[in-house]
Amino acid sequence: TTQFTVHSPEQAEQWKEYAKQKGLEVHVQKKNGTWHVTIH
């Protein structure tokens, strides 16, 4: 599991796309103005 924080919805979307291409599961949670992205 990879977990990191991004600071814009655009970055979060890019990671979603990346994960989809790799066939991975991605979870994005918005918290205090940042987005926590978890890739399984």
Rank of each mutant, 00 (worst) to 15 (best):
S8H: 06
Q3N: 08
V37F: 04
E17I: 10
K16E: 09
E10F: 08
H7N: 13
W15D: 01
A12E: 02
K30V: 13
S8C: 04
H7Q: 11
T34I: 15
V37G: 01
K20S: 08
V6S: 03
W15A: 04
V37T: 01
Q14G: 07
G33E: 08
H40T: 13
V26G: 02
K30D: 08
Q21S: 13
Q3L: 08
V6H: 02
V28F: 07
T2M: 15
V26W: 05
K16C: 06
W35Q: 01
G33Q: 05
V28L: 05
Q21L: 13
T34S: 13
N32C: 06
K30Q: 13
N32T: 03
E17Q: 11
G33K: 05
K31T: 11
T5R: 07
A19L: 07
N32D: 13
E10P: 02
G23F: 04
K22V: 10
E25H: 11
L24I: 07
V37C: 01
T34Y: 13
V6N: 01
T2L: 15
N32P: 02
W35T: 01
E13K: 09
P9H: 15
V6Q: 01
K30C: 12
W35D: 00
E25Y: 13
I39Y: 02
V28N: 00
G33L: 04
V6M: 03
Q11Y: 05
Q3I: 12
G23S: 04
E10I: 07
F4R: 03
G23V: 02
A12G: 03
E10K: 07
Q14K: 13
T38L: 07
Q21P: 02
T2H: 13
E25I: 13
Q3R: 12
Q21M: 11
K20C: 03
V37H: 00
H27Q: 09
T2F: 15
K22D: 03
K31W: 10
L24Y: 12
A12L: 13
N32S: 05
V6I: 04
Y18C: 07
L24T: 03
V6A: 05
T34W: 10
T5I: 14
N32W: 04
V6W: 02
T34E: 14
W15Y: 05
A12W: 06
H27I: 12
Q11D: 11
Q29D: 09
E13M: 10
Y18G: 01
L24R: 03
V6F: 05
K20P: 02
Q21I: 11
S8W: 06
A12Q: 02
Y18I: 06
E17F: 07
N32H: 07
Q3T: 14
W15N: 01
F4E: 02
G23D: 05
T38I: 12
T2D: 06
H36S: 08
K20W: 07
F4L: 08
E10D: 08
Q11K: 09
G23T: 02
T34L: 15
H36W: 14
K22H: 15
V28H: 01
V28G: 00
T1V: 14
T34C: 06
K16G: 04
H36I: 15
K16R: 12
T5H: 08
G23R: 04
T2G: 06
S8I: 03
G23H: 06
K30T: 07
K20I: 12
Q21K: 13
P9Q: 15
G33H: 06
E25M: 11
P9Y: 15
Q14D: 06
A12P: 01
G33Y: 04
H27G: 04
T38R: 04
H27C: 07
L24Q: 04
I39R: 00
Q3D: 06
T5A: 08
E25R: 12
W35P: 01
V26F: 11
E13N: 10
Q11P: 02
F4Q: 02
S8Y: 06
K16I: 15
V28S: 02
V28M: 04
T1K: 11
N32Q: 07
H7L: 10
H40K: 11
A12S: 03
L24F: 12
T2W: 15
W15T: 01
V6T: 06
Q29A: 11
K31P: 01
K31M: 13
K31H: 12
E13F: 07
V28E: 01
V26H: 03
G23A: 03
K16T: 08
T34Q: 13
H7E: 12
T1Q: 09
V26I: 15
H40D: 06
T34N: 08
I39M: 06
P9S: 14
E13Y: 08
Q29W: 12
K16Y: 11
N32M: 05
H7A: 13
K31R: 10
V37L: 04
Y18W: 15
G23M: 04
Y18F: 09
H27A: 07
K22L: 14
W15F: 05
P9L: 15
E25Q: 12
E10T: 07
K16W: 08
H36M: 13
K16L: 13
E17R: 08
A12K: 02
V37Y: 01
K30N: 13
K31Q: 12
H27W: 09
K30Y: 15
T5W: 11
H7K: 09
V37D: 00
F4P: 02
W35F: 08
V26Y: 11
Q3P: 03
H7D: 14
I39V: 05
A12R: 02
S8P: 01
V6G: 02
L24E: 02
K16V: 15
Y18S: 03
E13Q: 11
H40V: 13
K22P: 03
A19G: 14
S8E: 04
V26M: 06
Q11F: 05
F4W: 05
F4V: 07
I39D: 00
Y18A: 04
F4C: 05
L24S: 03
F4M: 06
K20H: 10
I39F: 06
E25A: 11
H40F: 15
H27K: 08
T1M: 12
K20N: 09
K22A: 12
T1C: 12
V28Y: 03
L24K: 04
K22E: 08
H36K: 07
Q14N: 07
F4H: 04
I39G: 00
L24W: 14
N32Y: 06
E10S: 06
E10Q: 10
T34R: 11
K22Y: 14
K30L: 15
V37N: 00
H27V: 11
Q14R: 13
T1G: 09
H27L: 10
V28C: 00
T5F: 12
K30E: 15
T2V: 15
A19N: 01
K16S: 07
G23K: 05
W15I: 09
V28W: 03
E17A: 10
V28Q: 00
W35A: 01
V26E: 00
W35I: 05
T38M: 07
S8M: 04
N32G: 12
Y18P: 00
L24D: 02
H40G: 11
K22S: 09
H40S: 13
Q21N: 12
Q14F: 15
K31V: 15
V6Y: 03
E25T: 12
H40P: 03
V26S: 04
V28D: 01
T2P: 04
K31S: 10
Q14A: 14
A19D: 01
H27E: 12
Q14V: 10
E25C: 13
T1A: 10
G33A: 05
W35R: 00
G23W: 02
K16F: 09
W15C: 06
T38D: 02
H40Q: 11
W35E: 00
T5C: 11
Q3M: 12
P9E: 15
N32L: 05
E25N: 10
T38S: 06
K30M: 14
E17W: 08
Q14L: 14
Q3W: 11
Q14H: 12
A19Q: 01
T34K: 13
V26K: 00
Y18V: 04
W15G: 01
T5L: 10
F4D: 02
V28R: 00
Q29N: 09
K16D: 03
K30I: 14
A19Y: 12
H40W: 15
V6C: 05
G33V: 02
E13W: 09
N32E: 10
Q21H: 10
H27D: 11
Y18T: 03
H7P: 09
Q11E: 15
G23N: 07
Q11A: 14
N32K: 06
I39K: 00
I39P: 00
K16M: 13
V6D: 01
T1F: 13
E13A: 10
A12M: 08
G33D: 11
T5D: 08
T2S: 11
K31Y: 12
T1D: 06
P9M: 15
Q3H: 14
